Computed example of a mutant assay.
Amino acid sequence: MTRVRSLTAALSAALLLLSAAACGSDGDDTPKSVAPKTAALGTLTPGVIKVAVQPYSPYTSVQGDKIVGLDGDILHHVAKKLGLKVEPQVTDFAGMLAGVQSRRVDITIGGVAWSADRQKQGLFTDPPYYSPPAMAVRSGKTYKTVDDLKGLDLGTVEGYVWVKSIQAVPGAKLHAYPDANGVFDDLGAGRVDVGFLDPLIIIAAQKERPDLKISTQYLTPPTAAEVKAKPAYQYFQPYQTGFYLPKQATKLERAISTEIDAMYANGELTELVEKYGGDPEQFLRPDDAAAAARRGVDRPSDWTPPAIAK
């Protein structure tokens, strides 16, 4: 996720999450017997993985005690392999991060973007997928590069990092909305030429609202020279997502990363991305910057990001 929240919002969300945890399970749902290997993962409750999540379909939403969506499906698959029962706690995006950083939950999921600042306060798994720079475009139009966006009406959601990128495009006019529905409504009405949102959100809207007559296109990422000249263009590049855990959860992070890497190799991630309308070539192949960003930071200097086979 590419949203930015204030410190006040983060603190308020943390209190909300603490309250939800206090009113949650009294232990009756705790697995009666936990295998030693599972107990050694060090979750807050042995045999249970507590997950902070916000409704963000089709990445994450909660139905009963199950998290559904791309991230939810990946986590449930991993949890089953590790012998863990998934216990969701609903909050907002700021609460997701705060819950991990204060170790009130074991993990948060839902398109959380890796960043050097966030990794200082928590642990990221290997990327369960990469998020390409997607555009919702009015049918009949094609845009490929940042130069193609000059002078256009460009929309996104307030607080998303694409706000900064759009503001850096020469002649472009920013249209910022409280939520994605505003972007789609104005696209359909012709008041906006291109909308920048997370790709599966666009794909879902394209299917659910054919009246909008929009298409999903992927921007050719700006070059290193372009980003150097205009640093805000970095947000037009793909970003690597991760499941985010407390700093203390080293064993759990490593176990989850191992299972994620296996899902690249055995085709399971390809199936899940396709299930939600994504293109595995876009979602499951890292760009050149992915390795460089994390090598020597929170990964070894020879780390290779996971990818599907060519």
Results as ranks from 00 to 15, higher is better:
residue 295 R to W: 15
residue 274 E to W: 06
residue 259 E to S: 04
residue 281 E to L: 13
residue 255 A to T: 01
residue 287 D to H: 04
residue 258 T to D: 13
residue 255 A to M: 01
residue 263 M to N: 07
residue 269 L to H: 08
residue 296 G to Q: 12
residue 266 N to W: 09
residue 270 T to N: 15
residue 264 Y to A: 13
residue 259 E to A: 09
residue 284 L to V: 06
residue 256 I to F: 13
residue 258 T to N: 11
residue 271 E to D: 13
residue 257 S to R: 03
residue 287 D to E: 07
residue 305 P to Y: 12
residue 280 P to E: 01
residue 265 A to E: 08
residue 276 Y to M: 01
residue 264 Y to S: 08
residue 268 E to W: 04
residue 297 V to E: 04
residue 291 A to I: 08
residue 294 R to H: 04
residue 265 A to N: 03
residue 278 G to S: 12
residue 269 L to E: 04
residue 285 R to N: 00
residue 275 K to D: 05
residue 269 L to C: 09
residue 256 I to T: 08
residue 302 D to P: 01
residue 274 E to T: 13
residue 287 D to Y: 02
residue 292 A to W: 14
residue 263 M to A: 08
residue 288 D to K: 14
residue 255 A to I: 02
residue 285 R to E: 00
residue 285 R to V: 07
residue 266 N to T: 05
residue 286 P to L: 06
residue 251 K to G: 00
residue 299 R to T: 04
residue 279 D to I: 14
residue 277 G to P: 06
residue 260 I to Q: 12
residue 290 A to V: 14
residue 268 E to D: 11
residue 305 P to I: 12
residue 253 E to P: 01
residue 300 P to Y: 15
residue 273 V to F: 02
residue 252 L to D: 01
residue 297 V to L: 14
residue 304 T to C: 09
residue 272 L to A: 00
residue 299 R to V: 02
residue 278 G to H: 11
residue 297 V to G: 03
residue 289 A to N: 03
residue 253 E to W: 04
residue 265 A to M: 06
residue 258 T to L: 14
residue 294 R to N: 03
residue 258 T to F: 07
residue 265 A to W: 00
residue 279 D to W: 11
residue 297 V to K: 05
residue 263 M to P: 04
residue 273 V to G: 02
residue 290 A to S: 15
residue 301 S to I: 05
residue 282 Q to I: 13
residue 251 K to P: 01
residue 292 A to S: 15
residue 254 R to H: 06
residue 267 G to T: 02
residue 275 K to I: 10
residue 301 S to D: 04
residue 281 E to I: 13
residue 251 K to V: 02
residue 295 R to K: 15
residue 277 G to Q: 05
residue 297 V to C: 03
residue 261 D to H: 07
residue 273 V to R: 01
residue 298 D to G: 13
residue 287 D to L: 04
residue 304 T to H: 12
residue 282 Q to G: 10
residue 253 E to I: 01
residue 298 D to K: 13
residue 295 R to M: 12
residue 265 A to V: 06
residue 271 E to S: 14
residue 276 Y to C: 06
residue 305 P to H: 14
residue 295 R to H: 12
residue 259 E to L: 05
residue 264 Y to M: 13
residue 299 R to A: 05
residue 274 E to L: 10
residue 256 I to H: 12
residue 278 G to W: 10
residue 288 D to M: 11
residue 294 R to C: 09
residue 277 G to W: 08
residue 297 V to F: 05
residue 278 G to A: 14
residue 252 L to F: 08
residue 298 D to I: 09
residue 292 A to M: 11
residue 300 P to V: 06
residue 291 A to S: 09
residue 292 A to V: 15
residue 266 N to K: 11
residue 267 G to W: 01
residue 290 A to E: 12
residue 265 A to S: 07
residue 281 E to T: 09
residue 268 E to S: 13
residue 304 T to N: 10
residue 251 K to F: 04
residue 295 R to V: 13
residue 285 R to T: 04
residue 251 K to I: 02
residue 301 S to R: 07
residue 271 E to T: 13
residue 297 V to N: 07
residue 305 P to K: 14
residue 269 L to D: 03
residue 303 W to H: 07
residue 295 R to S: 10
residue 301 S to Q: 08
residue 271 E to C: 05
residue 257 S to T: 01
residue 258 T to Y: 07
residue 297 V to D: 06
residue 286 P to G: 03
residue 280 P to M: 00
residue 264 Y to Q: 11
residue 256 I to K: 08
residue 254 R to S: 10
residue 271 E to M: 09
residue 276 Y to F: 08
residue 275 K to L: 03
residue 273 V to K: 02
residue 295 R to Q: 15
residue 252 L to P: 07
